[in-house]
Design a protein around this nucleic acid. Structure first.
Lengths: 236, 236
DNA sequence: TTTTTTAAGTGTTTTTATAACAATTAAATT
DNA sequence: AATTTAATTGTTATAAAAACACTTAAAAAA
């Protein structure tokens, strides 16, 4: 026996929802689609899975092609398989989400693709069922970040506690008491205080911190809870 | 433009990890595979995605073919796409997990497939990368059950609190204080006490409860925590 | 140089949730 | 009537979370 004859083969694609944080708001990266159908319309970055690559490899390749970044946080989200989701031909798409340091994003690469960052609250219409993918990705990121320290992936390697708090407040759309927040964050043992200040945000300046990578990896799977009332968070 | 020419189409399958609870232990349902390769070996229940069905439809169809059950809890787990995972031909598999009331499982249907329940600790070797699927499903069910009341899906519509506690202790492999457990469970408002006792488990008998379906659906996404030290639970 | 302005940094108290703990009761069996 | 078994229930202690306000560093303005 060489093949599973009589079975239909299906086109398989990967779509990536790329999140970034610019200090103000959580954003996603969209491109203008380069081929028909929907050519020129805003789209997630995606592509077809090649015969010899795994899904993780495909998503990493596509992400690198579009942002120039390698080794970023990339996680499989969900697979979308409605027979009608692509009008040209049935295409099943495995969605991934990525969290990147927006500062490392290489603009020149994206210029070829006309990529742009959009605030989550003001994303343009995207093609096919990608709006649903984005919604699910937003849910997932909130869900996961409520218990695991994934949001550090959105920050540069040196960051201040006010920056970190701002990020959490943004993602969870809630105000957090800064005394309680810093207490909690520091209690995790995930942060190393540096002898250097960020003077951009205030006159006094805020101390930079960096991740204790050893603790970060070892405690990554442990539960944590920076968020006062995670009751509002919905599951993936 | 009619098709995405030049792209390779790939075989797409669905595999279901079916969980059941018999009052003693958490179990999964396996079948003896009916075709080559690996014919006669233990396998998850799976099948190929048909041209006109969605992934959810495919998994529901396969589940019904094998257990006779419809409308059960079924959730997409992860998509496995290693190019070598099936030796005959590249097949990408979308894994789902199901939680069923083991009492509703129709034996006669399964007899055709030689299906059998296996305790999680004593599962036989399964084909391809299915062991990894099972491991991920176990993680996911623990992860999700730590915060959402999915385990009720494993119980009959009438159940006692000791039964429920037994289930939680099994899934999380931990002993729970029964006073604290019943307090927490009853505090959720998810249970309705019935005027009827289960006399099978003890002389005194334990009151039956049933789910308050309204509260169950409305609170499903809310966080909960029956488990004393969920620190040991790892993420999906 | 003094004062003002701005955001960073820090401690204590109150409240709530969790964890630890044991005696009583219903009902069958002896 | 006594015994056995598991179900049921409440209180106390401990830990975690939430609420709350003042001091400090440093630049900018007076």
């Amino acid at each position: 026996m060489q093949k599973y004859s009589k079975q239909t083969r299906i086109l398989l694609a990967v779509d990536c929802i790329v999140f970034g944080f610019d200090g103000e708001a959580l954003k996603i990266l969209l491109i203008k689609r380069g081929f028909q159908p929907e050519k020129g319309n805003w789209s997630l970055m995606g592509g077809f899975v090649q015969p010899e690559e795994s899904l993780d490899q495909a998503s990493n390749r596509i992400l690198k092609e579009l942002t120039g970044l390698e080794g970023v946080y990339l996680e499989q989200l969900h697979t979308f398989g409605d027979p009608q989701r692509d009008p040209i031909e049935r295409t099943v798409s495995v969605a991934y989400f990525a969290l990147i340091d927006i500062n490392k994003y290489e603009k020149q690469i994206s210029d070829d693709y006309h990529a742009e960052w959009f605030t989550l609250k003001r994303t343009p219409k995207v093609i096919f069922d990608q709006q649903e993918m984005v919604e699910q990705a937003k849910k997932r990121i909130r869900y996961k970040a409520a218990m695991h320290p994934i949001l550090f992936e959105l920050l540069p390697s040196k960051f201040t506690i006010p920056q970190l708090q701002n990020l959490y407040e943004n993602v969870f759309n809630t105000a957090i008491d800064k005394r309680n927040f810093s207490k909690r964050v520091l209690a995790t043992g995930l942060l190393i205080k540096l002898n250097e200040k960020d003077k951009a945000g205030s006159k006094r300046g805020a101390y930079y911190y960096q991740l204790n990578m050893h603790n970060y990896y070892s405690k990554f799977q442990a539960f944590m809870n920076f968020i006062p009332n995670p009751d509002s968070i919905s599951a993936s």
